[in-house]
């Protein structure tokens, strides 16, 4: 979970705000990369994070359950 929060922080505060200037030197089509992270990319990453977390937790709980039942 801690790793997921690090990613959350890096894509939004990191890429979107703190590192926006160097990233803006890189282009993604018509987007400057930093601008893209701030207005589009970070949101897509957020969605992926939540679904990854939900799946990982379900897997963990299933394993835990199998272990305790044994």
């Amino acid at each position: 979970m801690f790793r997921l929060l690090v990613i959350w922080f890096v894509v939004s505060f990191g890429f979107g705000i703190l590192l926006v200037e160097p990233l803006n030197e890189i282009r993604l089509g018509g987007y400057k990369l930093g601008f893209w992270f701030a207005q589009q990319g970070s949101i897509f990453v957020f969605i992926a994070l939540i679904f990854y977390f939900a799946a990982a937790m379900t897997r963990f709980e299933r394993e835990y359950q199998e272990e305790t039942e044994r």
Binding site: W8, G16, A38, Q39, S42, I43, F46
Partner: peptide, 24 residues
């Protein structure tokens, strides 16, 4: 433009906190 990103990231990023730390 770019300054408005605070709303986009702020109002969506909160869901990560909600899903990981609070709601479950």
């Amino acid at each position: 433009g770019y300054g408005g990103s605070v709303f986009l990231m702020g109002w969506t990023g909160g869901y990560v906190l909600l899903a990981l730390l609070i709601a479950p």
